[in-house]
């Protein structure tokens, strides 16, 4: 066990300069039995990012790591991209670290909730320890600037009369679920074209191949500012408070009365199963304190997210609610 561990660490160093500090974790300090009430990590902590470097999860994982290191002295967190299986490999890694408080997971709705509903994976969100939600991302419905559709009802009317192509990234994506909610509420159906990413959706929209697309604010903001696309609505309870997103009507304002829970994409932190209360509280507080820093604000602003911190039971309840609202929707989406 130790030998494999050492070798793994060695290889990592050989492969990446950025992880050079990982060698430090070979020598394990043995104070795991420190008093529970005052628990704090005594060895290097890993922030597992279950997706490739450069993506939304990676940006979150790195921002959270920097934030926790800022609010907690003498703590060393290394970001590890454990990629594979659309996130499943990273989640399983934590599942195997039962009771180990030195592993955190940068998580979001897709891999935490949707993947286990759609596929047979060895984990589920409720098998891990919920630490905290740190931010929320919303879904907007966007059209090209020269599109004849000025509102969601225009789009719905068009779908009643003929084929309306929409771009989504994957059947289980927040965009797909958002359109599904409109379809159910208005009793119409859109013609789904699945693309591999938000930017591919945008390209299809700009090229005129689809009438509308789902996008989160970060993906669409620059195109909106450049008058290339318009947002018809946003699945959010209240409007954004900064221009130009403040002009986008909420889905309720657009006349569609639905629960937006399934369309939200949370960004937060989960931990290994079986953490003690003290360990859980330690990490919860770290995230809470991070959310009060400048770095957090910058992260939220740069990525056009909504600040939202939920911890403990509140976070667990949110996860359960997302699961319970998404599962039936996915079953109805063929």
């Amino acid at each position: 066990m130790t030998i494999t561990k050492k070798r793994k660490n060695f290889l990592k160093v050989g492969s990446s300069i950025a992880m050079a500090c990982a060698l430090g974790s070979v020598t394990l300090a043995s104070s795991a039995h420190a008093q529970e009430s005052s628990w704090s990590p005594s060895q290097q902590v890993s922030m597992v990012v279950p997706f490739k470097p450069g993506g939304g999860s990676d940006i979150f994982g790195r921002a959270a790591t920097a934030g926790i290191e800022e609010v907690r002295n003498n703590i060393d967190i290394s970001v590890q991209n454990i990629v594979g299986g659309s996130g499943a490999v990273g989640y399983s890694t934590l599942l195997q670290r039962k009771g180990n408080p030195n592993y955190l997971l940068a998580s979001e709705t897709g891999a935490a909730i949707i993947l286990p509903i759609m596929n047979d994976v060895p984990y589920n969100w409720d098998k891990l320890t919920p630490i905290a939600e740190a931010a929320e991302d919303h879904t907007m419905i966007i059209v090209a600037n020269d599109s004849p559709y000025k509102s969601i009802s225009d789009l719905v009317d068009a779908a009643k009369e003929g084929q309306v192509n929409i771009a989504i990234s994957g059947k289980g994506s927040p965009a797909s679920l958002s359109f599904k909610l409109i379809e159910k509420d208005q009793d119409v159906s859109f013609n789904r074209v699945v693309f591999e990413s938000g930017s591919a959706n945008n390209a299809a929209l700009l090229g005129g191949d689809v009438a509308a697309a789902g996008a989160n604010p970060g993906e669409a903001i620059e195109l909106i500012k450049a008058d290339k696309v318009r947002a018809l609505t946003i699945f959010k309870d209240e409007r954004f408070d900064r221009a130009p997103l403040s002009e986008v009507p909420t889905i309720a304002e657009a006349g569609i009365d639905v629960d937006i829970t399934p369309t939200l994409q949370f960004r937060g932190v989960l931990a290994s199963p079986g953490l003690s209360e003290a360990q859980q509280t330690y990490w919860e507080n770290a995230i809470k304190e991070w959310s009060k820093t400048e770095g957090y604000k910058t992260y939220i602003n740069n990525n056009y997210l909504t600040p939202k911190v939920r911890t403990g039971d509140e976070f667990a309840d949110f996860l359960a609610k997302q699961h319970d609202t998404i599962a039936p929707l996915l079953k109805e989406t063929d």
């Binding site: 990629v83 594979g84 299986g85 659309s86 490999v89 059947k171």
Partner: peptide, 20 residues
């Protein structure tokens, strides 16, 4: 791996390593 259209697993034999 996961079918890009439906998100269902194909030829993975339940191996999560093959999902991607």
């Amino acid at each position: 791996g996961l079918d890009p259209q439906s998100g269902n697993a194909r030829f993975t034999f339940g191996f999560i390593n093959l999902f991607g």
